[in-house]
Every structure is written in C-alpha cells, then in structure tokens.
Write a protein that binds this DNA or RNA. Structure first.
Lengths: 193, 193
DNA sequence: CGGTCTCTTGACGGAGTTCAAAGCTAGTGG
DNA sequence: CCACTAGCTTTGAACTCCGTCAAGAGACCG
C-alpha cells in the first residue's frame, strides 16, 4: 500500500498537514487490477473514484455501432472515474479498463462524504483538481479544432511520451479520433525525414 | 441590476439560504457590454469571473495563423472566464467578445476570496459547477470523435436552439471545427429533405 | 508450433477544405 | 427614401486529408 504518490499528488494542489494527509489516505483502499480487467463498464453505476499508483488504464465510451472513443489514458499519478455516474448515480457513459497489470487506490461515496466532513479543505482540493482537468480538456478541444491528425499525434507523443510508449496504435488512434491505419501512415511519413 | 437569474442559477447546484444568496450577490457588480466589445483579449490577464444576464458572448482562441476556434457560446445563465488565467494570473488563452449588446455580473479575485471566507459552501458551489462543465465537455469531446460534421451540426441546433438562432454560420462553423462554406452545404443538404 | 492480435501497405472513395465569384441582406449616411 | 457599403451566405470546381476495405507480414503467448 504505497500512499506516497497519492500524498505527493494531493500536495501539488493544496497544502495539507501530515495529520490531514493521513486522514485522507485512511479513507482509500488499495486494489490490484489485472490487464484487460474492467474497473467499470459502461451502463453500470460508478461507485468509486480511483487514483492509479501502478500500471495504466483507458477510459473510453462505446457508441451504438460498437465504435470505441478513448477519452483519456490514466497511468500512475492520474485519477479515474465516471464523474457524473459517481456523483449522481447515473449509468456510466464510460468504461475503465486496465491496459497493463495495475494498482489503484479507491474511495467510495460514503467515505468521500466523511472525508469532506473530517477535512473541509478537501472540498477545495477537488475543486482545484477538477478545474485543472477542465482547463486541460479545453485546450485539447481547441487543439482538435486547429491541428491536423499528424500534428495531434506529435503533440500527444511529446506531451505524454511515457504513456505513448506503452500504447498500441489502436489505442492512440482512438484517442486522437482517427483510424489506426492512418496512424500507421503518419508514422511512415515521419520516418522518412 | 437583476440578480434573480444569478440566484436561480446558483440554487440549481447548491441550496443556500436567502441571507447567503444576498451575501453572494453583494460581491458581484453589473456591467453592460456593447456588441463586438471584448470582455477579455487573449494574452491579457483575466481579472474576473462573469455571469451573463443578457445578450450573448463567444469564447474563442486565435492561433498563430489568425484562425479562431470557438470554445463555447455564453448566453443568459452562462458563466464566462478564462479559468486558468483568472486563478493563476497566467496570460489568457481565450478572448471573450460580445456577439450582441449584453450585460454581465462579474466578480474579481479578492471579492471571490472574501466570498469563500464569508460563505464556505461557495467552495462546494464552484466545485459542483466546474464538475458539471467538465462532464459536458467530456461528452462533447466524445461526440467530436464519433459524429460527422452534419450530425454535430444537428446536435448543436437541438441542444441550443435559442443560441443557435442568433449565430452566424461563421460562428457555428468555428464552434463545430469546420468551415462556414461546409456549414452552408450541410444546410442545403438538410433543406432537400 | 498455431492462433490471436497488431502493424503495414495499397487502391479506392468520400467527407470536408480551399479558393474564387456572385448574390443577399442589413445597416448607415446623405 | 435611395445609394452604398460591409458583412454574411451560397455555389461550384479542384483538391487533400483521412476513412474503408482487403490482404499480408510480423509479433507475441499459450
């Protein structure tokens, strides 16, 4: 049970005392997830928020035709959840699947409520984290509207080199919103330089 | 100075007493903004969060080639700000321009800090609002990866009919990430049905 | 080995862009 | 009330980027 990464992650957003950090961590439980195993399946209710301490996940949505769209990848130091489903009990629009053998620290709804009560500053923590996530997604949205597939591919590689190295073209394509065949063609073009 | 809309908007997310609502509203100031006027220009620091009570704005980013990408439109009952610039003082990546003669209630950083101190539940309010915005943007990201331009156009019309009616094809195109000529061609296709 | 999954390649097609021209408003000032 | 302009919309032809389909070549794992 390695809570150091979680503490560092939290400390990057809001300053907590050691006592508070312990109080926060004590609400989380650890869980191992095997490669290809699902933490959450679209349509279920998401009963946790998770923090990845090892491995890597993909969060994706499957449409009526069975086509998957990856919303993002979550390696060590990332959070995973279907926010709307977790907070409102709605059926999840996302599936969360391990790409590698992984390990997650997770917290349920009741424990999170108690956490808000025990350590009020946690409210601020999640506000700030959500805000940063929103800003990052806004930037990505704008990139998607102004960059070509090749530029988006290069940006992804340079922004997340450690994650990209572990992914198949299929996954990267699904994240970029293009076909894996075209990813292959982009790679060839780039190789010839 | 019509604070009713603001109170209703806030009340939809978190329950406040009348006293608290007054305390919140007292921190906001009203301002009229003429059509085509800028509330914020890319590169400046965003010194406010705004709530639109009348009219309509566009929030967009201009890239090195001068191409504009609309992030979203904000009519009555929407919030406007460059979040990252407002909270961290970074140069804004967004411009905010009035599309019509408009009216905004805005709050500066110091007043917002005081508000957090006066009414702690406001922290929760902004966490929840940010969360809902994030979820909506996640859904839009997935739609952009799975729907065609025509489907995205139709979705926009049905999701925001009142806003869409007031926009030019140029604005809609920039929001959808396509050219305004193609919007025109989509409309023709749809008319022939 | 043998099967499954991934990557590459190519021919073809279609969705969306670019560029240029012309017609349509709607506001503006005389 | 008309004339003028500036901005918006439409249209078409040529072009590009990217998707689809199909096939084959690795690569990995039991």
């Amino acid at each position: 049970m390695d809570f150091r990464i979680l503490k560092q992650n939290i400390g990057r957003h809001v300053a907590f005392s050691d006592v508070e950090l312990e109080a926060i961590c004590s609400r989380f439980r650890s869980r191992k997830v095997a490669r290809k195993e699902f933490l959450l399946k679209q349509g279920e209710v998401c009963r946790f928020e998770g923090f990845v301490t090892e491995g890597c996940f993909r969060l994706f949505s499957t449409n009526a035709d069975g086509v998957e769209a990856v919303l993002y990848f979550a390696a060590r130091d990332w959070w995973v959840a279907d926010i709307d489903s977790f907070t409102n009990g709605a059926p999840a629009e996302l599936s969360i699947q391990a790409i590698e053998d992984s390990e997650v620290l997770f917290i349920g709804k009741e424990d999170k409520e108690r956490l808000y009560a025990d350590v009020p500053k946690v409210e601020q923590l999640f506000r700030i984290m959500t805000q940063k996530t929103l800003v990052a997604l806004q930037r990505r949205m704008i990139r998607n509207h102004t960059l070509s597939a090749e530029e988006r591919y290069l940006h992804f590689l340079s922004a997340y080199p450690d994650i990209a190295r572990r992914l198949t073209n299929l996954h990267i394509a699904s994240y970029l919103g293009i076909t894996h065949e075209f990813v292959s063609k982009i790679r060839r073009r780039l190789a010839g330089k």
